[in-house]
């Protein structure tokens, strides 16, 4: 019977190091293996790029078709080409939530925590791996949307280049914005431990809330609007802000979004560490 092969020879080779412990670097490697070994990761990341570039291209082509009506003074060609980010944030939120909720829906979390029971290490490794992947994919989506959009508008003298004021910051900011939305959903996923619930909460917080604020009286809107995570975070991927808008500056707005994400992640970590798995 095969069982006799568990074998002393194998045993000596498998002795763990005398010092040290299973730690963060090992967990990072493991979480990277996890995220790259499921098909949903690839589909979601592909969907992210397609949605961002596709909608950005539509918006840019639309602007080009009505080039005569566009007022050159206030038209933000960068933001126009990045219009797909509005939907892209929802796609990355789905992946962010799934990164942690799929462990609960499949039961994998019990296996994960019985090979690495130090929960803070697991939580941090997952967060870092997802942050890296979402940032890289977010930057790809943002830059691709920008170049495709500008190419479509270039014939109509609407386009800008990366060398123009604030443009490079806005395109990089687009990638950061997507990553931050994903991290917000990751934190919500850890709190709710349920895929549909976490995605609904993320969409509610990012999207629905911003829409609802639109129904408030104008004087309230000026004060509430800028604190909405999506609206605040979007400032980092615009190059022009109308002087009468009551918005945060680019990085200030991004900091507000990052703050929401940080709160979700910290609460998520506390839940992850203290609740029975």
């Amino acid at each position: 019977m095969a069982t006799t092969q568990i074998a002393p020879a194998a045993r000596e080779r498998l002795l763990p190091p005398e010092t040290g412990r299973a730690g963060f670097a090992d967990a990072l490697r493991s979480e990277f293996t996890k995220i790259k070994s499921t098909r949903s990761t690839y589909w979601t990341l592909l969907a992210l790029v397609v949605v961002c570039v596709g909608i950005g291209a539509l918006a840019s082509a639309g602007a080009a078709a009505h080039a005569n009506e566009v007022s050159k003074g206030t038209f933000d060609a960068t933001q126009q080409s990045l219009a797909g980010l509005y939907l892209g944030q929802l796609v990355i939120a789905v992946l962010g939530a799934l990164t942690i909720t799929s462990e609960y829906s499949t039961g994998m979390i019990r296996t994960t925590l019985s090979v690495q029971p130090r929960r803070g290490v697991v939580f941090a490794a997952k967060a870092v791996v997802f942050a890296m992947i979402s940032l890289v994919t977010g930057l790809i989506a943002s830059f691709a949307s920008f170049f495709v959009g500008q190419a479509l508008m270039s014939g109509h003298h609407l386009s800008v280049t990366l060398g123009d004021p604030n443009v490079l910051r806005a395109v990089i900011g687009g990638g950061l914005f997507l990553a931050a939305c994903g991290m917000l959903a990751y934190g919500l996923g850890a709190i709710l431990r349920h895929t549909a619930g976490a995605i609904t909460a993320a969409i509610g917080l990012l999207f629905v809330l911003s829409v609802l604020v639109g129904f408030l009286p104008g004087s309230w809107q000026d004060h509430v609007d800028k604190w909405m995570p999506m609206i605040a975070g979007s400032q980092v991927w615009t190059t022009q802000v109308p002087p009468d808008a009551h918005q945060f500056p680019a990085w200030g707005g991004f900091a507000v979004l990052a703050g929401y994400a940080a709160v979700a992640i910290i609460v998520g970590l506390v839940c992850f560490r203290t609740r029975d798995a």
Partner: peptide, 29 residues
């Protein structure tokens, strides 16, 4: 504890690999 506590979308090899990596266990194992 529970044989169903795995992510069904992952291959058997990758499932075991991601577990092994957490404790620095070589891939050959």
């Amino acid at each position: 504890l529970d044989a169903k506590a795995v992510h069904g979308g992952r291959s058997a090899y990758n499932h075991l690999l991601c577990l092994a990596e957490t404790n620095g266990i070589p891939r050959t194992r």
